[in-house]
């Protein structure tokens, strides 16, 4: 059974008397362990698609099955629990809490875990180790570089051991070296079994994924595997 199945999803925004259709009849599925890039130009609807897949907003029509379970009818509270347990987000703007330490930022999803028995410093430490940020654990978020901030954001996305990591333009605010580092981490997370769904407008970034869905004007125009996949190494990229 696919991890994610969407059928005929559509999304329309309404403001006063203006209706804007952002997504039309979007259908595809994602298997567990995939590394999918959703690609498209600005305004194509790719971020909206990611937000719907990430349970941050609801589609107006269509069906969304997560692990076979229809999530379109779930309540806000049920969606929040799913986001907490099964989904991790990495945003372009990092979205770290200001005046708060790295550790405290990473801890955030754990605070909303209803089953805190396993919660301890070990999970935070493991998440920080996975992004090589252990040495900055006590730093405040404002003291970090852009690349470091994004690595902390990835650690935060990881700390609850989610099935799926959504990354929305994760390299958009980074220099190329930091961007490469972030892509390397995302690839290693995928290698260790996490499903990664990346949203980007850059072909080079998208080519780090195993599969690319291209969205234009709210329609899926292509859905194909990456032939020459980029593998982010330590300061260099190789093609596979």
């Amino acid at each position: 059974m696919p991890l994610i199945t969407v059928k005929d999803l559509c999304k329309t925004y309404e403001s006063e008397d203006v209706k804007t259709s952002v997504l039309h009849d979007v259908s595809f599925s994602v298997e567990k362990g995939e590394f999918l890039a959703i690609m498209g130009p600005s305004g194509s609807g790719k971020s909206t698609l990611m937000h719907i897949l990430g349970l941050l907003e609801r589609a107006n029509c269509g069906e969304y099955l997560l692990d076979g379970r229809n999530v379109t009818e779930l309540t806000d509270n049920e969606l929040a629990v799913l986001r907490n347990k099964r989904i991790g987000f990495v945003f372009q703007a990092f979205n770290l809490l200001p005046k708060t330490t790295v550790e405290e930022n990473v801890e955030l999803p754990l605070l909303y875990d209803d089953d805190p028995t396993e919660r301890n410093g070990k999970r935070i430490a493991a998440a920080l180790a996975a992004v090589d940020m252990t040495h900055r654990a006590k730093y405040f978020s404002g003291q970090l570089s852009g690349g470091e901030k994004q690595r902390v954001a990835i650690a935060r996305a990881l700390v609850n051991d989610p099935d799926i990591i959504f990354a929305d333009e994760p390299t958009g605010n980074l220099d190329s070296k930091s961007g490469l580092q972030v892509m390397r981490i995302l690839q290693s997370l995928n290698d260790s079994g996490h499903t990664v769904i990346l949203v980007t407008h850059e072909t080079i970034t998208a080519e780090h994924a195993k599969r690319i869905i291209r969205v234009v004007d709210g329609y899926i125009v292509s859905d194909e595997p990456v032939v020459n996949r980029r593998i982010a190494g330590d300061g260099e990229v190789t093609l596979k």
């Binding site: 990430g54 941050l56 929040a80 987000f89 979205n95 809490l97 999803p109 909303y112 935060r156 609850n160």
Partner: peptide
């Protein structure tokens, strides 16, 4: 935005 982030990582309205 912090509220948005907290909700994204699992905070429910009552939290």
């Amino acid at each position: 935005r912090e509220v948005g982030l907290r909700k994204a990582v699992g905070a429910r309205p009552h939290h």
